[in-house]
Design a binder for these strands. Structure first.
Lengths: 241, 241
DNA sequence: GTATGTGAATGGGTTCACAGCC
DNA sequence: GGCTGTGAACCCATTCACATAC
């Protein structure tokens, strides 16, 4: 099943597509469900059989979401469960993978092989079949030429040319703040249209390029705000009404 | 980026008296505005004066959002601009900081000092005045006892006791998947009510604990899905300014 | 004239509740 | 009996447009 999502950005709305578009928020959660499903098949399956099927309630619990929300999310893939029973684990996994388009191979380039860059390179979920890490760049002459795994670090000045040659689809920016915009510019010049930015600033890119930000500081601050609003630890939340 | 488990359903509602509740989505963007504002004061200010004031349009452009959205967001802080002029940079900075409660000091503990953990420890925005990195833990006997900066790595078995003693408010989980749930359990046992999780799985915690997930794999997959939906690079790379 | 602040309108996402199927 | 799938209601969030203030 090839699910196609409508253009999110342009004002060309009101285009009742043949296939329903998958909402933004649902896409984000589908990746979570996939994580949970993958973990499921790896499980010893406990006392029972290898748990060939799972209910929306159980899957929702493991994914940390509301069961109704989960069912609604999965409904965008078309009917993929069995009423009165649940979802077939391998079948559902396949359906979600298909919706997310895991068959597409998107070569990744990493700009910045400092602490963070090296950590990312070794991170589980990176360097998979879908996202082969294909090029490394750094501006530090001491790092250029070094090998990490089977890749050699190249100078950041070569980003545009090399990425274009290798057909890089996704660029990961893991350089210090001061170098981040230049790195993004180089990726854009190379025709990269998807960027994952770990530097704590907002990259300026053309509309045709999508950027996702991962910002530790922001995450901490959001946690902090909720922290002080929560009731002190210890007692049930129902304490004060 | 943000999957949050736990009780967030009515946001900031529990405080009828003080400021109006700030919507979830707005809080996330306030941290971005703060980033942009901080970058502004550090700027040489170009040909003009040190730019003591800034318009919603300019600030929105730098933050990558719609001007109307930005004004609506700021309106939750109460009137803080000057009509016909714009926002005073230092005044606005103070207002946003106040809304985010940057005066609250929340000690942070880091569980897992592998590649990722070390990268995080050195990350800008970590180890600030608001979020002092106060304890390090790892399960690897080779790492226990090592010093990073002015901290000594302790065994992960000591998490509960040490975190409680130090009054740790936020725990960061940067261990491999297999060890993540145990790490979270230890943090929860220590009374930590806010967790930032970098392991690619959904942590199971009580409702009284909030978790934010940062998952590289999920980010890549979301990028990937949008990637294939976008039109191939066709339009001119119009100036980003 | 210019730019903020904000009700009102619009759109998207979540939750509910129940119909439909096993 | 149990569980999925989904319209409908509800709620949050974005955008619009203009009154308001400088």
């Amino acid at each position: 099943v090839t699910v196609q999502v409508g253009d999110v950005r342009d004002g060309v709305r009101s285009r009742p597509n043949s296939t329903r578009p998958i909402p933004e928020a649902t896409v984000a959660r589908l990746t979570v469900y996939l994580r949970v499903l993958d973990a499921l098949v790896g499980e010893p399956a406990g006392p029972t059989l290898p748990a060939t099927t799972i209910s929306s309630g159980e899957l929702a619990r493991r994914a940390g979401v509301n069961p109704a929300k989960l069912r609604k999310d999965l409904s965008f893939l078309g009917p993929c469960g069995i009423r009165g029973v649940g979802y077939d684990v391998v079948g559902l996994t396949a359906a979600v993978e298909s919706a997310l388009g895991v068959d597409r191979v998107l070569p990744v380039a990493l700009v910045g092989v400092g602490n963070l860059g090296q950590a990312l390179a070794g991170y589980a979920g990176f360097h998979t079949r879908q996202f082969p890490l294909t090029a490394l760049f750094d501006s530090d002459p001491a790092k250029v030429g070094c090998r990490f795994g089977d890749l050699v670090v190249q100078d950041v000045g070569a980003v545009a040319e090399v990425c274009r040659q290798l057909g890089i689809a996704i660029g990961v920016v893991a350089v210090p703040v001061v170098a981040a915009q230049a790195a993004a510019d180089a990726l854009v010049a190379a025709g990269v249209r998807s960027v994952l930015n770990f530097a704590p600033l907002v990259l300026q890119v053309p509309d045709s390029v999508q950027v996702r930000r991962v910002d530790l500081g922001s995450e901490l601050q959001v946690l902090a705000l909720h922290h002080q609003e929560r009731p002190a630890a210890g007692e049930p939340v129902s304490a004060r009404r």
